[in-house]
Design a protein around this nucleic acid. Structure first.
Lengths: 224, 224
DNA sequence: CATCTATACGTACGATCGTTCGGTCTAATA
DNA sequence: TATTAGACCGAACGATCGTACGTATAGATG
């Protein structure tokens, strides 16, 4: 009875998982630039030094590859935005400010080569029903729900005394973030991040947020 | 001397222009859903009852077709947003409010099958340098410049006493509009338009805008 | 009038797409 | 140990892509 389900490294299954991981690492960058429909099994295989048919069997179909890509991007987003904000801040308004900062940094750092993966995927699939869109919607909703909950906690703590609708503020903040992302890419400029940060600060101050906290929102601009 | 440059219907040039017009009418709708890269000469030809090679000669190359599509969409945008707002309002804050209303209506009405053409094209090409992106950037900038000028006139007229940076407000307003567009398409809901209208009203009021004018911002929701 | 030019077509080209199939190799399993 | 199952490949499939060429037609132009 000493076996059960042991982790045997470099087994056959482990090798497959590693291949998938490597391929998806390319896929998320490619998709952020060319779109999820712009993904190509052939090019992905070439980049990962695999055969075309090898990649095809590894994912089954292009649609499954696209869904796996969305899931991989979701994990990167959590690691790069949600987790850091969670570590650097406490619940409440502080957390909300940290999420905004981390998001702007994540976009500015070009964690994905073509900017925010989900901003691109959402617009690409907003009029294309199907499983891929469902996956994109699910991931986007998850993020916005998390931001809404974070805002609600700030409300409950009395840190945003003039706000009663958390979802409304979520809408406004993500509007700023995504608009900054697109404009920064279009104009190769960091100015949009400054505008987004300013807009968020102004709004939070107007809602009665503590200026000392709100003023922490800003960007350590990297953009070329 | 009765000729000069007479409009001779069904001349050779006129027929070509009509063909291009009909093809582009399909192209702008297709591109708003499938993207500008999703355009296909073959499918466009089929939809317009032309031969594939006919469409190809009519536009020269796919890239020129894409640029012509951007220009056609630009004209539609002017007809559907800028012109109506210009007719229904005077310069100043009234014009700014009208532009917001017309834009929300234009998105909600699905003037383009896949929502705002430029919101889609901007995100699709924000990381893809080239002539097509340049055309998209030019059209987008033209719109934002016009909105900025309209805001500046409101400032100059003393209608937004607490605002000094017209571009900042432009950034915030278009953020709301585009976010509403995408979310309405993703969720087949009109709620995002309400949120965008509310966000714009709140912001304009905070800047000292006349409530009687600002309250005119709203949507006569059509969305399914 | 003759000449030029642009629409429009059929056909064909090479490239690339997603997918399928047969087969080899080897780790996991019974 | 024998069997199963998954990684991975080469080759080929039908489809579709953008583009090019030759040609017929007819309006514009000199």
């Amino acid at each position: 009875m000493t076996q059960g389900r042991v982790e045997r490294p470099d087994g056959r299954r482990a090798r497959g998982d590693e291949s998938r991981r490597a391929i998806l690492a390319h896929a998320i960058d490619t998709a952020s630039v060319e779109g999820l429909d712009g993904l190509t099994i052939g090019r992905l295989a070439e980049a990962a030094r695999h055969s075309k048919s090898g990649v095809a069997t590894l994912f089954g179909s292009k649609e499954q590859l696209q869904r796996a890509t969305v899931e991989a991007a979701r994990q990167v987003f959590i690691d790069e935005v949600v987790e850091p904000a969670g570590e650097k801040s406490e619940r409440g308004l502080s957390r909300v400010c940290a999420l905004i900062c981390e998001w702007l940094d994540y976009s500015d750092k070009r964690v994905f080569k073509g900017g925010c993966f989900f901003a691109a995927a959402a617009v690409e699939f907003d009029s294309k029903p199907g499983p891929v869109r469902d996956a994109v919607v699910a991931a986007s909703s998850e993020w916005e729900d998390y931001l809404t909950i974070s805002i609600q906690r700030a409300i409950d703590a009395g840190e945003l005394p003039l706000l009663d609708d958390a979802r409304q503020l979520t809408f406004e903040l993500v509007s700023f973030l995504e608009a900054a992302n697109t404009r920064s890419l279009m104009y190769s400029s960091a100015e949009p991040y400054e505008r987004a940060a300013r807009a968020a600060r102004t709004r939070l101050i107007a809602l009665g947020g503590d200026p000392a906290l709100v003023e922490t929102i800003g960007v350590t601009t990297t953009t070329r």
